[in-house]
């Protein structure tokens, strides 16, 4: 059974799907938080992700030039701080002026920011792909040998291992923030009912800042994880992630951060598993259409249940 079916399925479809799902989940957290708290679909979120991976690349270069061999996750620390500052800067100068305007103004502004941020990255780093991590990722030998001794051989490259563990850690941190800190509870409150939040004396502007910090951090993590996974970075990677992230947020229910996580995992798995030869020899869905899977799930959800799996908001 393991030889004929499980080995291939788990190692070449399920685990990559899970990894992709983690990346979508982290990205979707930011989307669903801004959608829930600021009530708008933030089109520039993918660009924050993309910028973080470029910044990480830049920091690795700087470290290397200083003679320090840095792991991407080390470069990601200063990069995520920059990403958070970028998110706060964009909010202050491009979104805040529209706080009391019809929400669609802010959607248009975020649509514009999408292009502005991407153009800036293209001006600074050029339009071509950059290699993020060199070489072929080999499966972790220890896990391979250990699992092989149980006739259950798992081939997990270290990069996937870091991404999975990293995502779990961020989720735990995020859960602690939302359920046990005042600012996290405030975020849930504003997302629940912004008008009531105002007349309850909650400082909504501070909550909004916290939202950008959390969303920016998760986006930075997602961007770096994606770069670690694909081992290259390019200026359109954020835009490519945008649709699956929106799909994940809608699938999980808008304003439901853990719904977004579930949605992200489902979408990531669905995309990878769509290439599995379920029927006959070829993949069920031609690989060229893989990125259409997220969209189809989203459209299906909008038709049958716009509030998502976990009773989110519908505007």
């Amino acid at each position: 059974m393991w030889e004929s079916f499980g080995f291939e399925f788990i190692n070449f479809y399920f685990i990559p799907g899970l990894v992709l799902g983690c990346i979508y989940a982290l990205g979707a957290i930011g989307i669903t938080l801004t959608f829930g708290i600021l009530r708008f679909a933030n089109f520039s979120h993918g660009e924050i992700m993309m910028t973080s991976s470029y910044l990480t690349w830049e920091f690795i270069m700087i470290f290397t030039s200083l003679g320090i061999l840095a792991h991407p996750l080390i470069g990601a620390i200063p990069a995520s701080i920059c990403a958070i500052l970028l998110a706060l800067f964009v909010d202050r100068f491009f979104y805040k002026p529209f706080r009391n305007a019809p929400t669609i103004m802010i959607v248009i502004a975020s649509f514009g920011m999408m292009l502005i941020i991407r153009s800036m990255v293209q001006v600074i780093w050029g339009p071509n792909q950059l290699t993020f991590v060199k070489g072929i990722a080999k499966p972790n030998a220890y896990i391979r040998d250990l699992t092989a001794s149980f006739d259950f051989m798992l081939l997990i490259p270290n990069k996937h291992f870091s991404i999975l563990i990293g995502t779990v850690l961020i989720m735990l941190l995020f859960n602690y923030l939302l359920s046990s800190t005042k600012i996290g509870k405030g975020m849930r409150a504003v997302s629940d009912n912004p008008d009531l939040a105002k007349v309850s004396g909650i400082d909504v502007e501070n909550i909004i800042k916290a939202t950008w910090i959390v969303g920016g951090f998760c986006a930075a993590a997602a961007g770096v994880f994606l770069a670690m996974d694909t081992q290259f970075i390019e200026s359109t990677m954020g835009f490519r992630m945008l649709l699956p992230m929106f799909a994940a947020a809608i699938l999980g229910g808008i304003g439901r951060p853990f719904g977004a996580v579930a949605g992200g995992l489902i979408i990531g798995l669905a995309e990878e598993l769509s290439a599995y030869p379920w029927l006959g020899d070829g993949p069920v869905i031609s690989p060229g259409y893989k990125s259409g899977v997220a969209f189809s799930i989203m459209v299906l959800m909008l038709i049958i249940k716009p509030s998502g799996l976990f009773k989110g908001k519908v505007f």
């Binding site: 959608f35 708008f40 679909a41 089109f43 929400t103 669609i104 959607v107 649509f111 649709l243 929106f246 809608i250 989203m298 909008l302 716009p306 519908v314 505007f315």
Partner: peptide, 8 residues
């Protein structure tokens, strides 16, 4: 649905 969904 609201305009944002249509945009997406």
């Amino acid at each position: 649905l609201r305009a944002d969904y249509l945009a997406i």
